[in-house]
Design a protein around this nucleic acid. Structure first.
Ligand SMILES: [Mn+2]
Ligand SMILES: [Mn+2]
Ligand SMILES: [Zn+2]
Ligand SMILES: [Zn+2]
Lengths: 136, 136
DNA sequence: ATAACTTTGCAACTCGGTTGCATAAACTTT
DNA sequence: AAAGTTTATGCAACCGAGTTGCAAAGTTAT
């Protein structure tokens, strides 16, 4: 029984072939991936199946989605025991050179004081610039 | 000579009828508006013209665009002497009840420490929750 | 083996944004 | 004022990301 199977089962998903492939792809990346990235990687797989795989992963908190402002949503693995609560939130970084989107897992989102009677539920914070790989 | 004309001229745009209408619409709002908001408001106007009007406004730094994660870009007036530099950046707030997007002009984006060799160029920070109007 | 449920594949569609191109309007030059 | 040049507008058509419906294939339970 594969390692990925355990991960899927522990998050209450059946370990189908497609799901293993996608999870493997996510595991071997250190950056977030989009649906179209996956389409390119698995050119035999159907877009909708990949789409629904990602949705299923997200619903079951195996991955979280990132809106980095590029127009295509990115996905990245959640930490082992992540429940996608506010305190699990972290900053994301989009490199304008290599177009890669990083989870800055060790960079929690700084707190912000809002105007009176505004109540915060969640925050999306995306820093843009150049990543370490692209430095000069 | 209208007030809006001055604004347009001072930002190097010719004060056409269309531009005056759109600028008026932006001035009378205290929340950010999307292209489709404008389409609804001016149902006789062409979508592309509105689109290009917003683009022109943005290029000339009369307005700035906001990606609030809803899938449709919002626009709001810049402050009088705004040059859209990093220090002009502020937090935006999206109310999940009324779906309105606010400029929190008095809430600068808090600074964030990045991993080694990551260089920041700009930041997008969108807080989601309920606004003062929607408070219980 | 049959029935019930889940996953996958294909087609088709929505929606926001964008481009090309022709017309109309506004300035410039003679 | 007429002709030429630039700029703005309107319409059609397109694009990519995301999404839905539905039928076929695969799985699990009875
Ligand atoms: Mn992340
Ligand atoms: Mn703003
Ligand atoms: Zn990079
Ligand atoms: Zn509200």
């Amino acid at each position: 029984m594969k390692d990925t199977d355990d991960k899927l089962i522990s998050r209450n998903m059946k370990p189908t072939a497609m799901r293993e492939l996608v999870l493997d792809a996510l595991l071997e990346q250190n950056v977030a991936v989009s649906l179209s990235d996956l389409e390119k990687k698995f050119d035999r797989a159907d877009k909708v199946t990949l789409y629904r795989t990602l949705k299923t992963f997200e619903e079951n908190k195996l991955i979280h989605s990132i809106d980095d402002g590029t127009g295509s949503v990115k996905y990245a693995l959640c930490a082992e025991n992540c429940q996608c609560n506010p305190h699990d939130l972290h900053v994301h970084f989009f490199c304008t050179k290599c177009k890669r989107t990083y989870c800055l897992n060790d960079t929690p989102i700084p707190s912000v004081t809002l105007p009176l009677n505004f109540e915060i539920k969640t925050i999306n914070m995306v820093v843009k610039g150049t990543c370490a790989n692209c430095k000069e």
